[in-house]
Design a protein around this nucleic acid. Structure first.
Lengths: 231, 231
DNA sequence: TTCATAATTCGATGATAGCCGAAGCATTGA
DNA sequence: TCAATGCTTCGGCTATCATCGAATTATGAA
């Protein structure tokens, strides 16, 4: 009767309808912002904040701070597994996907995130860098490999040694708004974007306030040659 | 926001500490009575009754009525699986087994349940009957096979045709108090117990009110020859 | 039948917790 | 610097629900 395992605590976290809606929305594996989760659950941001704090304290979700957004994701596949099991017991199928990211396809394709490339191409680029072993992903950070340094020098004329900055990492994983996966930030991300512009591969859209990045025809080809995924 | 899957409903069932204690107590696979579950959860029988009704409505447990007891068990291994998953998320190890059945070893070994044999030997007997294909277990009932009828006639001088009774089944699975598994009840169970007594294999204990059944030396041997599990 | 035990139902109480309005930080952009 | 946005904290309201006392039903035992 006393000293029971805290199974009830975890279950009661999932037991609230608002929270369970948030959790199911996160089961896709993508990270969602607090506001989106609030809307998903049909509650105000204040209430959602309280729920999210509890879920985080319970170890079911973890936040990633990104500018003025807080992206939340499930802490692991085991959480998703338990949620699936519960859904199985409930024997329901309701899906309710959440609309994600910007409506503008151009924005989803390529845009500026602060000073580096984001969107589909940004995510694709980081994927490719990892696949080619040009960057190495450790526990908390990303770092350029020796091959990566050579690659940057020969292919993009970027001297890796000049990228060091006292208050900013060279490489940083930045959670992508539309893709909900990481793209490359940091001084390297910024330098690469600058190079793309200098090489006339891409330029920021002329419309005031637009964050869209337009790639030229040749720029797109060159980019695909370096970071294409073979599609 | 609306029309979500009822994952929250199931989770909230597990989310109450009293209910989660009951469920973990049932994870051993054994069936427990309402009173025992109440004691396990540290609540009064009234409260437990309410909880058990909710768990049953939620499809997590199912009852089996046995005399004036109601034995509850989990509805399936998937329920236990989800509970395990939740426990894993909670990352605790507390076990808290529930003491079960009578303290008296003799009572656990062999005793009278109404008019048939119960206890370790009773359960063992039904197991053996099933193993030897002398009885067949269908969805809701147990029935004697043709081989079983011959066995009863030759080994125990019981005529299966005389066992029919208007208001009582020939064979019935009866949930065992100490073992929490089924033993054989019904007119056949009663007839077999009577035969054991007549053959001087066993007799009810002389102490007033005792339900202990004492097997004689030879009786135990004969019994083991027919229903032994080879140990 | 009468009594005892197991379990349920009903009613009232009390505490927990979800909820939102308003205000307060934190970060970004101009 | 100021304004806007995302998010959190605080305070109070409300509703839900677990809990138990008392009474009721059902089954078994004497």
């Amino acid at each position: 009767m006393k000293a029971g395992p805290d199974i009830a605590m975890v279950a009661s976290l999932v037991g609230d309808p608002a929270r369970s809606n948030m959790l199911t929305a996160l089961m896709s594996g993508r990270a969602l912002t607090a506001s989106e989760l609030a809307q998903e659950a049909g509650i105000t941001p204040q209430t959602a904040s309280s729920h999210l704090a509890k879920l985080e304290a319970g170890g079911l979700i973890e936040p990633e701070k990104q500018g003025r957004h807080r992206y939340y994701r499930l802490t692991g596949p085991d959480v998703a597994g338990v949620l699936e099991g519960l859904a199985g017991l409930a024997a329901r199928a309701g899906h309710m996907r959440v609309r994600t990211g910007p409506k503008d396809p151009a924005l989803r394709r390529a845009r500026i995130c602060y000073d580096h490339l984001a969107g589909d191409l940004g995510v694709q680029m980081l994927d490719s860098l990892k696949k080619q072993r040009l960057v190495r992903e450790t526990k908390q950070a990303i770092e350029l490999t020796n091959e990566g340094k050579r690659f940057m020098a020969t292919a993009l004329q970027i001297d890796a040694d000049t990228l060091a900055h006292p208050r900013r990492p060279v490489c940083k994983a930045c959670l992508d708004w539309s893709e909900r996966r990481h793209h490359l930030a940091g001084t390297l991300g910024a330098a690469m974007m600058s190079r793309f512009t200098e090489l006339k591969w891409a330029e920021r859209d002329s419309a005031p306030g637009s964050r869209v990045v337009n790639f030229s025809r040749t720029g797109e080809k060159r980019f695909a040659a370096l970071f294409g995924n073979g599609e």
